[in-house]
C-alpha cells in the first residue's frame, strides 16, 4: 500500500493543467478528491509519473443555480452538494443521492467531477446524471465541448473524454416543479458501492429512470422511462431488467442482483410518485 514515486503538480488554472497533461501524455493523470486514484496508486495498479491536482483551480469550483439550469463545478465536493440549500430546492435528488455515497469523511474530499469522470460503474453520480439528462463540459487543447451524460459512458473506466481533456463543469436542467424524484440504494454497509441503485424522476407526463452498478456503465433506459411516463410501472421495471447486465461478485450472484434491482426500482418509483405534484 505504498505508491511508486510521482511528481506532483498543482496548477491554478485549467489551461495550465491541460498543458501539463499534453506534456506528459499517458504518464499523467488529474486528481480531484483522490478517492479512486490514490487507492489504485497505493495498490500499484495505477503507475503514474505525474499527478495533477485540480484543487487550486477556482474556475472548477462553485454551484450556480439558474432558472432553467444548475451548473456544478467539477471540483464541488459531495459535502457541498449536500449542504447547498439552493441546490436541494432546485434538484432535491442530488442531496438524497449524495447522502448515500460513502461516509462524511470521504464526502468532504470526494468531488462530483471525479465521481462522474472516472467511469467507475460503482459510482452513484453517473446514473443520477443520466437520469437528470445532465451534460458534461470537457476542456481540452482544442477547446471546449459538451457531451450528454447519456452519451458519455462507453465501458468500465472508458468514457467519451479524451486523455488530454478535463471534465470541468456539469450542467443540469432544472426539473419541472411537478416532478417527483427519488434515489434508492441498497448497499452492504456504510461506505460501500451499491448492490443496486435507482434514480427516478416522474411527473407531468414524463419520466426518466437510471440504475447504478448493474452493468459496466450506468444504465439509463429510454424504454423504461417511456413506460413510466405512461404510468406503466411493471413495463418500466421489465424494460430496465432487460437493459441491465449485472455480474456476480461479493455482493451476490446475478439472479439476486436482478431481483434487488427490481425492488430498488419499484421503491424509487413509488417514492418519486408520492412526491410528484
Amino acid at each position: 500500500m505504498i505508491p511508486a514515486g510521482f511528481e506532483y503538480h498543482r496548477p491554478t488554472d485549467t489551461a495550465s493543467a491541460i498543458s501539463i497533461l499534453q506534456e506528459h501524455g499517458d504518464d499523467a493523470r488529474v486528481i480531484a478528491g483522490g478517492h479512486s486514484l490514490i487507492p489504485m496508486m497505493k495498490l500499484r495498479m495505477a503507475d503514474l509519473a505525474h499527478v495533477i491536482d485540480l484543487q487550486d483551480i477556482q474556475e472548477m469550483k462553485g454551484i450556480e443555480i439558474g432558472a432553467d439550469s444548475v451548473t456544478l463545478g467539477a471540483m464541488v465536493t459531495q459535502h457541498e452538494l449536500i449542504t447547498h440549500d439552493g441546490l436541494a430546492a432546485a434538484v432535491p435528488i442530488i442531496r438524497e443521492a449524495a447522502l448515500q455515497i460513502a461516509d462524511p469523511q470521504v464526502r468532504y474530499m470526494g468531488t462530483v467531477g471525479g465521481n462522474v469522470a472516472n467511469g467507475d460503474p460503482g459510482n452513484d453520480m453517473p446514473g443520477l446524471m443520466q437520469c437528470l439528462d445532465a451534460s458534461f463540459e470537457l476542456v481540452g487543447p482544442d477547446g471546449t465541448r459538451t457531451v450528454a451524460a447519456r452519451d458519455f459512458y462507453e465501458a468500465a473506466y472508458f468514457t467519451a473524454r479524451e486523455d488530454e481533456e478535463i471534465l470541468t463543469r456539469i450542467m443540469i436542467p432544472v426539473p419541472a416543479a411537478e416532478t417527483g424524484q427519488a434515489y434508492e440504494k441498497q448497499k452492504r454497509k456504510i461506505g460501500d458501492y451499491a448492490t443496486a441503485a435507482a434514480a427516478v424522476m416522474v411527473g407531468g407526463g414524463s419520466a426518466s429512470v437510471a440504475m447504478t452498478n448493474l452493468a459496466d456503465t450506468p444504465v439509463w433506459s429510454e424504454e423504461a422511462s417511456a413506460a413510466l411516463a405512461g404510468g406503466d410501472v411493471e413495463g418500466c421495471v421489465a424494460a430496465m431488467l432487460d437493459a441491465i447486465d449485472p455480474v456476480a461478485d461479493n455482493r451476490g450472484p446475478v439472479e439476486f442482483k436482478k431481483h434487488v434491482a427490481a425492488v430498488m426500482l419499484r421503491r424509487a418509483i413509488a417514492r418519486a410518485m408520492s412526491r410528484a405534484g
Binding site: Q186, R188, T195, R251, G252, P253, E255, F256, H259, V260
Partner: peptide
Amino acid sequence: HDHWRIWKIANGLGLH
C-alpha cells in the same frame, strides 16, 4: 448471513 445469502434462503423457501 449477508444480504444475498439471506435472500437465497427466502428464495429457496419460495417466498418471492
